[in-house]
Computed example of a mutant assay.
Amino acid sequence: MTRLVKIGEAKTHLSALLADVEAGEDLVICRGSQPIAHVTRIDRAQEVTELRETMRRERSRQQSVTTSEILSWRHEGHKR
């Protein structure tokens, strides 16, 4: 759903309007009756998917770690 908002209203209620955008509503900011800007939510799902793929790709390049290596790290940096 797209909502038309005049500049004055946008300036006065910016925080509330951005909360509506985060909830999925699109805004068109108008000067008088002339639309000048379209405000819409950024789709973070695509960013998360890309990050997940990058992490998996980088992890697949790493050597496997053995249990003995993990156990040797347990006390690394501790005084003995």
Rank of each mutant, 00 (worst) to 15 (best):
R44W: 13
A19I: 08
A23E: 02
E50F: 11
I7R: 02
L71D: 06
H13M: 08
E69G: 00
I70W: 01
R31P: 02
T54G: 05
I70D: 03
H78W: 10
R41P: 10
T49Q: 15
L51S: 13
A23R: 08
E22G: 01
G24A: 05
T49A: 15
L14H: 09
S60R: 08
R61F: 07
S15H: 09
R44G: 11
G77P: 01
R80L: 12
V5E: 02
I7A: 07
S15T: 15
V48C: 06
R41V: 14
T66Q: 03
Q63N: 10
V48Y: 10
G8W: 00
T40S: 15
V28F: 09
A10F: 02
L18N: 05
E58I: 04
E25D: 06
I7P: 00
S15F: 12
I29A: 07
C30Y: 06
E25G: 04
E53L: 09
H75C: 11
E76T: 12
H13V: 08
V28E: 08
D43Q: 14
C30Q: 11
R57W: 03
T49M: 14
Q34F: 13
A16Y: 05
S60H: 05
T12V: 02
L17E: 02
W73T: 12
I70E: 01
E53T: 08
H13N: 11
G8M: 03
A19M: 08
S68T: 07
I42W: 10
S64N: 07
R61Y: 03
W73Q: 09
T40N: 14
E47G: 13
